[in-house]
Design a protein around this nucleic acid. Structure first.
Lengths: 350, 350
DNA sequence: TTGTATGCGTTATCAA
DNA sequence: TTGATAACGCATACAA
């Protein structure tokens, strides 16, 4: 900026204002400055700007991991919404470790981000580090895996609905003993998916059988084990609603290994619409989580928070509608669905 | 820092030095300062520090995309190596778009990163934006998809070797008409994989048949099309070496749709060791790209560059050894492999 | 071993 | 409409 000022014989103040399109600068001067800036390939120093203004144009993102399709897609949505507003993002992974999660937050704090987007790690059981962030006035929005309480801003999938429509679909396909592979119940997402499952059972007048609910960390291997365990029951299930795609896949593979036909002997559905659901044999029915919308909604909410500048802001929870993608692994009665030939039939889009 | 200085009755200079473990500060004072800093939960302002020192502790990463397993794993390796050296990373996606790639580099520049790690987008055909970076003295390391030329620092997989061992393996399994699904030849990785394929053919005395090489962008749908096209040849192939897993998967599915047995009628191998290779039926043979090591190596190289401070530094290329993971999709002669029962048999680890 | 003074690049304030 | 000046938080040359 000093160079430009010298060359044009004006002050850096004028340069600064011209570049940020300040109203007090005449159009002629603005033209000149901006042209010269382009010529010299001027790059603003965001650090200096952030230092002076006390706020940067950076948003921090903390995700449990990036593998798979869900989080990258969410991050993509975030990037889109952020860049539209002139922001950039820093991505950190907690690798499902609360210690790393805390360290990530410190990193973001000292990078002077304008706000933080968090999806909690699986091992996050207390929330002090988030309180610390808030006490420093750092705008904070959770997504997908959210902190409990009324005081949090969050964007979530309606996981209860996801569990509900999955289970209802299975019931509609004639299944009567529906098992559930459930995740850690301290995480909202898994608790709600289970609740939707129970709601659908109750609505249909089917009994709740605790033997049919298997709790695990939802990994592939645990899906294998869970299915094995379920099939040893005196009265084994005719369907499995898994709260995650990895364990659904494990269950699917183990079922076939046992010589069971899917979906005829046991119908299987997953959750997340991971890429591989279109690759398994049979293709895996799953719930799409509106990943990209989730990212965009989270950033929009965060930007509102930032613009409110710590002023009065009543916490908001945005809830997105899940979408059941019915595929072969649960389609016992294809004639019920005219479009059943489609590989990724959307049964419910409201 | 000012608060701490006041409370301890010393200058901010002392605080600054004590916190950065400067030799001129006595151990007693260091203790006191660091304790108080913890008590007040002091967070250094990295922007201010970066502004003053002219360099930050941030590394910029530009990847084409994050979906799948390869890039997240590379990034994980980068995070690990970076945090060991006190650095953090900013991740940007170019989404295979050179326009976005350029914008990302601008963003990173103005975020005052200490260095940049780039894997080029598929649409990057000229390299001016990288020259611009270099002309500003910004340390730059490429990984996986690298710029051509002697003047670049880069970490790559030995893709030629990957193509070579894949093809050799197929030859060893008795295949004689081996097709190749090739990617855009302006990208080093695809050019080299093809070269390895040709080398192995030549070594085995097999003819090169250009009809057996199909060029595409390596997407799933293009794998489907390519296989269809290949099977229409008067003399169709008995094996397919695909330079990517997505198109390998497409080929695999199309082959089975046509009623071909895999690997008996046509053996298929892919490249990248994506997660889904363990899910397909049959499981897909693929080349592992040492993703995590690649990330670590790239950061190590970048840090060396940064520490050299623009001084003399002869450009270096690090090349990693690929690993062929033989699975059912190419295993015609299992008796050749004692450990063939393993789902992910490592055939060649040198 | 500690302190004083200064500047990194930008922008807000106040004055012209 | 423009400019002079100070300040953001930190690190360092120099002095003590």
């Amino acid at each position: 900026m000093a160079d430009l000022a010298r060359e044009l014989g004006v002050s850096t103040t004028t340069i600064s204002r011209a570049l940020s399109d300040h109203f007090s600068i005449g159009p002629a001067m603005k033209q000149k400055v901006q042209k010269l800036a382009r010529k010299y390939n001027y790059q603003p120093n965001r650090m200096a700007s952030a230092l002076r203004k006390g706020k940067s144009k950076l948003l921090g993102i903390v995700v449990p991991y990036l593998e798979g399709r869900f989080f990258p897609t969410v991050v993509y949505g975030m990037e889109k919404a952020a860049s539209k507003a002139g922001y950039n993002v820093i991505i950190c992974q907690s690798h499902e470790d609360v210690v790393l999660e805390r360290r990530n937050l410190d990193t973001l704090l000292s990078a002077q981000v304008a706000g933080v987007l968090v999806s909690m790690s699986r091992t996050t059981l207390d929330y002090k580090h988030f309180d610390k962030l808030r006490s420093r006035g750092m705008p904070l929005v959770f997504f997908d895996r959210v902190e409990e309480g009324d005081n949090v801003n969050a964007v979530v999938l309606d996981d209860r609905e996801g569990g509900y429509i999955s289970t209802r679909h299975l019931i509609g396909q004639g299944c009567r003993r529906i098992a559930h592979l459930a995740g850690p119940q301290h995480l909202n997402i898994y608790r709600n998916r289970r609740q939707g499952y129970l709601d659908a059972l109750r609505e249909a007048g089917l009994p709740e059988d605790e033997n049919l609910v298997v709790y695990s960390d939802m990994l592939h291997a645990q899906g294998v084990d869970s299915l094995r365990q379920l099939m040893l029951l005196p009265n084994p299930p005719d369907a499995v609603f898994s709260a995650g795609d990895d364990s659904a896949l494990g269950a699917l593979q183990e079922a076939r290994r046992q010589g069971l036909r899917v979906p005829e002997d046991v119908a299987i559905t997953g959750f997340s619409n991971e890429t591989f659901t279109l690759v398994t044999e049979p293709n895996l029915t799953s719930v799409d989580q509106r990943s990209e919308e989730m990212g965009q909604a989270a950033v929009r909410l965060l930007l509102e928070l930032i613009d409110a500048e710590g002023g009065p802001f009543s916490p908001r929870k945005v809830s997105l509608r899940p979408e059941l993608l019915v595929r072969q692994s649960s389609l016992r009665e294809p004639e019920l669905y005219a479009e059943a030939a489609e590989p990724a039939l959307i049964v419910r889009r409201r």
